[in-house]
């Protein structure tokens, strides 16, 4: 999914849970900013493909795979809040609805997954999610008016 979807989901989650201050920052860090690993992969992409468009290039890293719970949960224990794990789980749930290859437990396992709901086209899932998000946002605005 696009970064816009992650930002929208996180923003709605922050409003719905009425998060403020540190918790709101943590929500955006683990709901959106974990995508920073694409920046780490950018030099590899440029080396591989230059400025050409290589669809399906492997942009993912363990920073946004389920294996990251191994370090996010101790962080939750340290901060005394479940917010990082919750928003990271939402980030993962969205990413795993797109049907490209993923390595959920690398480097501990080389198991490959294409995520869930693979029988539906990615575009259909994204449109459905965006429609759902729009409804959630409208509901939140109506509740807080």
């Amino acid at each position: 999914m696009t970064i816009i979807t992650h930002i929208a989901v996180t923003a709605i989650g922050v409003q719905a849970l009425n998060l403020r201050g540190r918790d709101a920052v943590l929500a955006f860090l683990f709901g959106v900013a974990v995508d920073i690993d694409h920046v780490i992969k950018a030099p590899f992409y440029l080396r591989y493909a230059g400025l050409t468009n290589q669809k399906d290039y492997y942009w993912r890293s363990s920073l946004q795979e389920p294996v990251a719970f191994l370090w996010i949960l101790p962080l939750c224990l340290y901060f005394g809040t479940i917010v990082p794990a919750l928003f990271f789980a939402i980030h993962l749930a969205i990413d795993y609805s797109v049907g490209y290859e993923k390595m959920p437990f690398y480097p501990y396992s080389r198991y490959i997954s294409r995520g869930w709901l693979t029988q539906y086209p990615d575009k259909t899932k994204e449109i459905t999610l965006l429609a759902g998000l729009a409804c959630c946002q409208a509901y939140l605005l109506w509740v807080h008016r």
Binding site: D37, I40, K41, F44, R47, Y48, Q54, K55, D56, Y57, Y58, S61, S62, L63, V67, A68, W71, Y100, E101, K102, M103, Y106, P107, R110, I112
Partner: peptide, 30 residues
């Protein structure tokens, strides 16, 4: 976290060496 990223980058180099059909690159890399 840095160690995980180091291992990821090494795996990426391996996948880049393999090239070919990128839709199945992780499977072939593994």
């Amino acid at each position: 976290v840095i160690s995980l990223l180091v291992l990821d980058c090494r795996f990426q180099l391996l996948m880049d060496r393999l090239g070919g059909d990128l839709d199945t690159i992780a499977t072939r890399g593994a």
